[in-house]
Amino acid sequence: MHLTRTWTPPGAYDLPGSLAVLARGPYDPTFQVHAGSVWRTTRLRSGPATLRLTPAASRVRAEAWGAGAQEVLDGLPALLGEGDAPEEFVPRHRVVAESHRRHPGLRLTRTGRVLESLVPAILEQKITSIEAYRSWRHLVRKFGEPAPGPHPSLHVVPEPRTWVRIPSWEWHRANVDSKRSDAIVRAAGRSSRMEEAAAMALPAALARLQAIPGVGPWTAAEALQRSNGDPDAVTVGDLHLPRTVGYALTGERNTDDAGMLALLEPYRGQRHRAARLLTLTGLHPPRRRPRRQPGDITRL
């Protein structure tokens, strides 16, 4: 099945910038940018789908393939940020105002798919991004399926029951320890409960995800930022974000979660958007120690 549709944004719109948070590294088998188009795969209730998004004048042209083509196009406005309201954001700091001015087309995406955001967030717990991206790539390519449509290298994420059935040695080969694999299996085994969180208000959605052992505030916020597009789902427990926010707003280099939340308090209701705008400034505290090297449990 091959279907097309167009979407007209209500104002300035940055397609790759808005959807960039959905990519899990430069070689994500579910997300690629090629020749000006954004390609994305997903698994919906109606089946797998591949989506190609291309800016065309003042519109976005969408093409969809697969059993889930109609459903993915029905969710296109939410995915592209139509339900977002960036005009409600009021900058309270000069550096935030400047970033807001430089990125007028940034909108928060809403995929409506919780598990496909939750699994990679669990993989990213307490390790380097490089390690997590490699694990995600390995698992999706091995246990997912080739994506419908013309893109030759894209894959669709595994079904929930497939995540549950991955044997322990395959998690080990993917460089995923038992703590993270167990959390993924628990979440996938309750996939219906997880997907219900897409329609919940933020407090209830956070509580629903954190009811899974191994899913804490950091992981839940990272997933819901993408699945629910909530502008207030600020990430706590991150190694770098508090320091980035603190350094950009005060020049201090050792801000912790409590300090970050205090600095973002004027943006309550829009704290995630404020934090994202600050990460786009490029203002980061200088390193005092070597970059952490990726680990590898596959040799153990």
Rank of each mutant, 00 (worst) to 15 (best):
residue 260 M to E: 00
residue 274 A to T: 03
residue 284 H to Y: 14
residue 66 G to S: 06
residue 146 P to K: 12
residue 296 D to R: 14
residue 254 N to D: 15
residue 137 R to E: 15
residue 211 A to P: 04
residue 12 A to R: 14
residue 296 D to P: 07
residue 9 P to M: 07
residue 6 T to F: 12
residue 43 R to S: 11
residue 146 P to H: 12
residue 179 K to L: 13
residue 296 D to L: 13
residue 63 E to P: 01
residue 148 P to R: 08
residue 37 S to N: 07
residue 89 F to E: 07
residue 186 R to W: 02
residue 257 D to N: 14
residue 51 L to Y: 04
residue 262 A to F: 06
residue 173 R to K: 15
residue 167 P to E: 12
residue 195 E to T: 08
residue 250 T to S: 01
residue 286 P to E: 03
residue 108 L to D: 06
residue 102 R to K: 14
residue 258 A to M: 03
residue 257 D to I: 10
residue 264 L to S: 08
residue 263 L to H: 06
residue 259 G to K: 01
residue 56 A to Y: 12
residue 41 T to N: 12
residue 21 V to L: 13
residue 140 V to Y: 04
residue 31 F to V: 04
residue 237 G to N: 11
residue 213 P to W: 04
residue 19 L to A: 09
residue 79 L to K: 05
residue 217 P to H: 12
residue 88 E to V: 09
residue 172 H to W: 14
residue 16 P to K: 11
residue 217 P to V: 05
residue 191 S to W: 15
residue 156 V to K: 00
residue 55 P to H: 04
residue 17 G to R: 01
residue 266 P to Q: 00
residue 19 L to S: 08
residue 280 L to D: 09
residue 294 P to W: 08
residue 264 L to H: 08
residue 276 R to A: 02
residue 264 L to Y: 10
residue 190 R to I: 00
residue 100 H to I: 00
residue 259 G to N: 02
residue 249 L to K: 01
residue 111 T to Y: 02
residue 138 H to W: 13
residue 105 G to R: 01
residue 58 S to I: 00
residue 25 G to T: 03
residue 270 Q to F: 14
residue 288 R to I: 10
residue 13 Y to P: 01
residue 106 L to N: 00
residue 206 L to H: 02
residue 231 P to T: 11
residue 161 R to P: 02
residue 20 A to G: 08
residue 295 G to K: 14
residue 64 A to H: 02
residue 42 T to H: 08
residue 3 L to I: 09
residue 113 R to M: 07
residue 175 N to T: 12
residue 245 V to A: 00
residue 67 A to Q: 09
residue 289 R to G: 05
residue 261 L to E: 06
residue 205 A to V: 03
residue 10 P to A: 15
residue 144 G to L: 09
residue 221 A to N: 07
residue 10 P to C: 10
residue 123 L to A: 09
residue 277 L to C: 06
residue 298 T to P: 05
